[in-house]
Design a binder for these strands. Structure first.
Length: 375
RNA sequence: GGAGGGGUAGCGAAGAGGUCAAACGCGGCAGACUGUAAAUCUGUUCCUUCGGGUUCUAUGGUUCAAAUCCAUAUCCCUCCA
C-alpha cells in the first residue's frame, strides 16, 4: 500500500473526523475534496495548477480509460501517474457509475454489465474481475469495487437484490485483486433503506477492505434523504479506515456529510460548472455569463486568493466565457476547485475546535441567505 | 448600355395567396447540472396595460384575404458589352 490512513481526531458532537496520510513523502489531511479527471485529466487544468491549488487525490475512470486509450496503453506508458504526469495519489472509479448513467436494466446480469460503446456501437462487457484488472493495469492508488449505482427511485425489492449482487461482485473483485501497492475499497449501497445500508456495510467490513465508500447517493433524492443514506452506512464502518462519499460535492453536502463521518469526496461539479460559466462564492453561486457582470471589475470573490481572483476580474472572465475562450473555463475551474479545497480546510479547522455545526450555520447564512431549510 | 437573380426579425436562411408574428441555425437573455456519453441540455427572444397592436426594402394596386400576385421606385449581386 502506498499510504495508510490515520485517524487523528474525532468530534465529540457528531461523527466528523480529522485524519491524514502520507503519500510520496507528502502529508495530506482529511476531510478532503478530490477533483475528477475522468479521462486522465482534470478538464482544462495542468497537474501544476492542481498542485498550486493544493488538491490531493484526483479521480480517473476505469470505463473511460478502458475504452480510450485502453488500459494496456496506460500500462505500457508506465501507469497512470506517468501517463498523465501526476505525482499525487489517484483514485479510479470502477465503472459502477456508468452502470447508472449508461446501462439499461436488462444490460445488468449476475456475471457483469453489457454496454454499447456510443462512439462506434461496439458491444462491451464489464465484470467485477475485469474492472479490477483494468484498475491494476492503470496503476491507481485507490481502487474501487465494481458496484451497481442504483437508479432513483427504485423499489425496495430491486435495491435488495442489487445490494446482494453488489456484495457478490465486491467479493469477486477482492479475489481478483492482487496488487499490494494499491488499496481496494468496498462500496456500500442500499438506497434509502437503513437495514439494507447496514447489512451491506457489515458484509463489506467482514470482507476487510482497505477503505469503504458510500455509493448510490446524489442520484436524484433530496438532501435530507441523502444525509440519512450516508449515516446509515458510516455508522457501521470501522473507524481506522478511510471513508469516501462518491459523487458528492455541493458545498453544503460536504459539510453535512463530514458531520456524518465522511473523509473524502469527489464531484464533477467544480469543473463542469466552470465550463458552464458558474463560480462558487462565499455568498452563493454566480453565473458569470450574466450580462450584469460585463463591467464588473471586481474578482469572482473578494475573499478568495486563488490565481483567478488574484489576477482577473468578473468582466474579463465573463468576456472569455462569452467568446468561448478556453481560458475562461480554466480560470473558473481553478477558482471552483480552490473554493472547495478552502472549504475543506475550513471544515478541518472547525473539526479541530469541534465547532463544525456553528460553521455550517454561518456558511449557510452567507451562501444561501435566510430561509434555507436544512435541519 | 444589355440580360438575369435578389432584398424576410440582431445576423444567416426557409416560406411562393388564407392553417404566418413568420420554420431552422447563429447571436442575445435566463435556467439546470452532485462516483463526467456533459465546453452539454432546457426555456425564451417584434411591441403589449395580455384585450390586442404593428411587421417580411418603399409606395401604390389586385383580392374577401398579400411576406407570397401586379406596377413603379430603390438598393445589392452575377453575366454580357
Amino acid at each position: 500500500m502506498r499510504f495508510k490512513y490515520e485517524l487523528k481526531q474525532k468530534s465529540q458532537r457528531n461523527m466528523a473526523r480529522l485524519g491524514s496520510f502520507v503519500y510520496n513523502g507528502k502529508e495530506y489531511e482529511t476531510p478532503m475534496f478530490m477533483p475528477v479527471g475522468t479521462n486522465a485529466t482534470v478538464k482544462t487544468l495542468a497537474p501544476e495548477e492542481l498542485k498550486e491549488i493544493g488538491t490531493g487525490i484526483i479521480l480517473a475512470n476505469t470505463y473511460h480509460l478502458w475504452l480510450n486509450p485502453g488500459d494496456d496503453i496506460v500500462k505500457r506508458a508506465g501507469g497512470l501517474h506517468q501517463f498523465m504526469n501526476y505525482a499525487g495519489p489517484i483514485l479510479t472509479d470502477s465503472g459502477g457509475f456508468q452502470v447508472f448513467s449508461l446501462a439499461r436494466p436488462k444490460d445488468i446480469t449476475e456475471e457483469g454489465v453489457h454496454f454499447k460503446n456510443f462512439k462506434n456501437g461496439d458491444s462491451l462487457f464489464l465484470t467485477p474481475e475485469k474492472s479490477i484488472n483494468i484498475q491494476m493495469n492503470l496503476g491507481s492508488d485507490l481502487v474501487m469495487s465494481f458496484d451497481e449505482c442504483v437508479k432513483w427511485p427504485s423499489t425496495r425489492e430491486y435495491i435488495e437484490q442489487s445490494v446482494e449482487r453488489t456484495l457478490r461482485w465486491a467479493k469477486r473483485g477482492k479475489d481478483a485483486f492482487n496488487n499490494p501497492e494499491q488499496m481496494l475499497f468496498g462500496i456500500v449501497q442500499g438506497g434509502e433503506y437503513a437495514d439494507l445500508r447496514k447489512k451491506c456495510a457489515l458484509e463489506l467490513v467482514k470482507m476487510d477492505f482497505d477503505g469503504y465508500a458510500v455509493g448510490g447517493t446524489s442520484v436524484g433524492e433530496d438532501k435530507k434523504t441523502m444525509y440519512k443514506m450516508v449515516e446509515y452506512a458510516t455508522t457501521y464502518l470501522p473507524e481506522d479506515k478511510i471513508r469516501y462519499l462518491m459523487g458528492v460535492g455541493d458545498p453544503i453536502d460536504l459539510i453535512e456529510n463530514v458531520m456524518r463521518g465522511i473523509d473524502i469526496f469527489d464531484c464533477v461539479s467544480p469543473t463542469r460548472l466552470a465550463r458552464h460559466g458558474h463560480a462558487y462564492t462565499w455568498h452563493g453561486k454566480i453565473n458569470i455569463s450574466n450580462s450584469k457582470y460585463k463591467d464588473d471589475f471586481s474578482p469572482l470573490d473578494s475573499a478568495c486568493d486563488c490565481y483567478a481572483c488574484k489576477h482577473y476580474t468578473k468582466a474579463y472572465i465573463k468576456h472569455l466565457m462569452s467568446e468561448k475562450e478556453t481560458f475562461g473555463a480554466r480560470l473558473l475551474s481553478i477558482h471552483n476547485i480552490y473554493f472547495l479545497t478552502q472549504l475543506m480546510a475550513k471544515i478541518r479547522a472547525n473539526i479541530a475546535t469541534d465547532t463544525l455545526e456553528e460553521f455550517r450555520d454561518a456558511f449557510i447564512k452567507d451562501y444561501y441567505g435566510d430561509g434555507y431549510d436544512y435541519k
